[in-house]
Design a protein around this nucleic acid. Structure first.
Lengths: 176, 176
DNA sequence: GTCTATACGACGATAGAC
DNA sequence: GTCTATCGTCGTATAGAC
């Protein structure tokens, strides 16, 4: 599954050919179809669901510890740096949302993105911001990370990504 | 050319099949090869070059008028809203940078992105910021737009895009 | 310059042996 | 559950008539 994730993450849905998925997984085509009867679309959905699950349990879980608020955010930041390998790896939600994804895949992508934003919004609310203010802050914080990954991918400059992570506490907590 | 641009912009390099390019352009395969002898890669490079050129002359040109600084930035913002259709259209630099683009294509994408950032950095410098500070501000401003487009595409919520545009003057000009 | 026709490999997907 | 073998289609690319 790790290998499948990497292929979809790096190549997007169209670029993730069965040949690549086969080579990466070490399984033959037919074996992949045995596990994912509906074919490539099944694999894509499983990959997105799995990544969403991992993202929740390994990156965002730090949001609901009993540590101080800012520590929790910094922990999430460190987790994100690791998850995106300092900005060297693209976001699955970006690469998989190119073109017109099938309905169920699009739903999974939307749910993953909104969940991410909601968790960060919860942290912002904990700092005393209103519901709508927290939602805006969380959305813009996630967008700053997504945008930094796009800039990093096109320019090979990862400074923007590091700044987006470093600015997370400020973006979510700071009073205007 | 307009139609070719739309296909690459929406589908990315892998998703932009010759069938789609043929249908969109109204030309047959062979006619496309007559104009782009090296095939799809040629088309992709021509599309990126053309968009980069248009972006410079129709969006970023507003940076070097003799209007007040903030007016120039707001004009660029309005141009961007139009260019991205209020966040409904993806950025070519995002969709085309998925996977591993061929060397010359990657160079064009990088140049387009760095030029965009440089122009905004020039505006920030005009406001009195240092070269490095201006570079940071411009990079983060572009990233905020790119990220907002990714969020918009996955969630069908375009508010983040509108905010990224509205915050352009502040991001480029404001003293900390 | 644009067309019809076609080459040929890669694509996603399936059948059936083990 | 995994494999080999194969299907039909779509992919990029080319040849040659008009």
């Amino acid at each position: 599954m790790d290998r499948l994730i990497e292929v979809f993450r790096q190549e997007g849905f169209e670029g993730a050919s069965l040949a690549r998925l086969q080579d990466a997984s070490g399984l033959k085509r037919s074996s992949l179809y045995h596990r994912f009867p509906a074919g490539k679309n099944d694999m894509a959905c499983a990959v997105v669901a799995e990544v969403t699950n991992r993202f929740g349990t390994t990156i965002l879980a730090a949001a609901s510890t009993d540590e101080p608020l800012e520590d929790r955010i910094n922990e999430i930041g460190r987790n994100l740096v690791s998850f995106y390998d300092d900005g060297h790896l693209p976001c699955l939600l970006d690469t998989m949302s190119i073109g017109q994804p099938a309905g169920d895949l699009a739903d999974l992508l939307e749910q993953a993105m909104t969940t991410w934003i909601s968790v960060l919004a919860g942290l912002s609310r904990d700092a005393g911001h209103s519901r709508s203010d927290a939602q805006v802050r969380a959305t813009d914080a996630v967008a700053s990370i997504q945008g930094a990954l796009v800039v990093a991918r096109t320019t090979n400059n990862h400074n923007a990504f590091e700044r987006a992570i470093a600015l997370l506490p400020e973006r979510l907590l700071q009073r205007d």
